[in-house]
Design a protein around this nucleic acid. Structure first.
Length: 485
RNA sequence: GGCCACGUGGCGGAGUGGUUACGCACCGGUCUGCAAAACCGGGUACGCCGGUUCAAUUCCGGCCGUGGCCUCCA
């Protein structure tokens, strides 16, 4: 059976045919490292991780190359560096900001259950490739120098605007931004610009004397070229990147290499809102991945608090919350808008918890290789329909088909060996250690039950319930105390 | 203003030109002294107005609503 993917460029779902099945190539726009990643940043990371896993499953892990860049040169980074480290020289301050943010991002993404991409190139390590591209564009007449900038000449590319469906003439009519005077055409965009004193700077291309730095779009053209070649299979990112970022990437790469396409499939994940509103710092509803990972356990699982007497491995809470967030995210198809709410997060966590209970009750062995169920695979092959895939998981859980359940969770990146296997996790430990007094109450209630004093029996049960202890009367006459939710 | 998405039962969320996906919540039942848990069952939804069709939630047109892009943004 085929893999079918929706392509933003052709606006249709097509059968995926890799250029070279022995080397399937995907590029996804990664973060600009200047601040904590938010829950909206998490979406493409998770979505394309699932695609990465699916491609590895279909073509073999060693036949898939996934490139996700790190943007570490950018005005926002400079601004943040000045703000946070006013006493340091700018370039040192920038290094502090990018290193710190980069590490945080990787910790966040790992907690979300994402595999590391094959390559994570950094923009600042590809300045030479960017300059080579710029020289090529100069040579082919697609770029020009003006006031120490190099600009891409949009009218020089006849079919510019196909991805975002913005014909050139319309865009010019609709443009209402202040246009720099040195631009020949208001749509032209910067490939290279001069650096101000103290800013990161490199020797400029195209005979420009002053040192400068790259424009935003050129880095992705350079890095995808370096690591994937002139044309490749899949290019992904958030829907907001369609214009201008991806449109401009296409323009740069195609004109530099004289190719008809940059990537064969353009995939874009839908936007995310928080509690029904646009997420923004001014509204105060900015949810970072860190916020989600730090969610107290008591709202997700039947335990009273985060700390317990049993030994727990480091970062277990973040990892569990990360899986829950991932699961919550995959409940909606990647291309659809999503409303991120605490309710959604909690409900996803509840369901994932039940899946894990099924596996744990069956002593699921994660070391064994399992066959991924056909119906789950079919759902994913249909343009990454993760909600439909999750639906198949529910049936396997209900029928106690633990092999299929485990295999499915694994393919979706939702299976964590330690959460399945370990028996010392408070997270899955329902048994309660009662105080002597509580123990006596349980005994007193049982005595009352024996003499059929239901009134007294229920009174004691209510009293214990108020302490957060729920009693379960078993059919063999014993009583099990459990933590109440 | 231009371009583009989305609008499904209380909530979440797939999907389809004609056989009431699925999950949560809710209600009923079995079990239980009563509960809890578990299991079984129940509720025929697709923004509005037209059109096409034997038949539309599904196709077409218009309208309304929400959101995105056009400036940094996943």
């Amino acid at each position: 059976m085929d893999l079918r993917l929706y392509d933003t460029l052709t606006r249709e779902k097509r059968v995926f045919t890799p250029i070279d099945p022995a080397r399937v190539r995907m590029y996804v726009c990664g973060p600009t490292v200047y601040d904590y990643a938010h829950i909206g940043n998490a979406r493409p990371v998770i979505v394309f991780d699932v695609l990465f896993r699916l491609l590895r499953h279909l073509y073999g892990a060693e036949h898939v190359t996934y490139v996700r860049n790190i943007t570490d040169v950018d005005d926002k980074i400079n601004a943040r560096a000045t703000e946070e480290y006013p006493s340091l020289p700018l370039n040192e301050a920038i290094r502090e900001v990018t290193n710190k943010t980069d590490k945080q991002f990787h910790d966040d993404v790992a907690a979300l259950g994402c595999l590391p991409p094959t390559v994570e190139p950094r923009a600042t390590e590809h300045i030479e490739e960017m300059k080579t591209l710029i020289e090529r564009l100069m040579k082919s007449g697609n770029a020009y120098v003006a006031e120490e900038h190099v600009l891409f000449s949009v009218p020089s590319m006849k079919d510019y605007g196909k991805l975002s469906n913005r014909p050139l003439d319309e865009m010019i009519a609709g443009a209402r931004v202040d246009v720099a005077a040195y631009k020949r055409n208001e749509m032209d965009f910067v490939l290279w610009k001069p650096s101000k004193r103290g800013e990161p700077a490199w020797p400029s291309p195209s005979g420009i004397k002053t040192q400068g730095r790259p424009g935003w779009h050129i880095e992705c053209s350079a890095m995808s070229w370096k690591h994937l070649g002139e044309t490749f299979d899949i290019h992904g990112g958030g829907i907001d990147l369609v214009f201008p970022h991806h449109e401009n990437e296409i323009a740069q790469s195609r004109c530099a290499f004289h190719t008809s396409v940059m990537a064969n499939y353009w995939m874009h994940n839908g936007f995310l809102q928080v509690e029904g509103e646009k997420m923004s710092k001014s509204l105060g509803n900015f949810v970072t991945i860190q916020d989600v990972l730090a969610t107290p356990m008591s709202s997700l699982v039947p335990i009273a608090n985060d700390e317990g007497p049993t030994p727990i491995f480091a970062g277990w809470k973040e990892r569990w919350n990360g899986l829950c967030a991932r699961f919550a995210m995959l409940q909606t198809k990647y291309s659809e808008p999503i409303d991120w709410t605490t309710r959604r997060f909690n409900e996803a966590g509840d369901e994932l918890y039940r899946f894990y209970e099924v596996l744990r009750d069956a002593y699921y062995d994660t070391s064994l290789t399992r066959e991924v169920p056909d119906n789950l695979l079919a759902a994913l092959r249909d343009d990454l329909n993760t909600p439909a895939a999750i639906t198949t998981l529910r049936a396997t859980a209900k029928s106690q088909d633990v092999s299929a359940l485990g295999a499915g969770l694994s393919l979706l990146g939702l299976l964590d060996d330690e959460f399945v296997r370990r028996d010392d996790l408070l997270l899955f430990n329902h048994a309660l250690s009662l105080t002597a007094e509580q123990e006596a109450m349980v005994n007193a209630r049982n005595a009352a039950r024996v003499r059929k004093d239901w009134k007294e029996s229920d009174r004691i049960r209510d009293e214990l319930a108020a302490m957060g202890i729920c009693l379960r009367d078993n059919s063999d006459g014993t009583t099990t105390p459990e933590s109440a939710r």
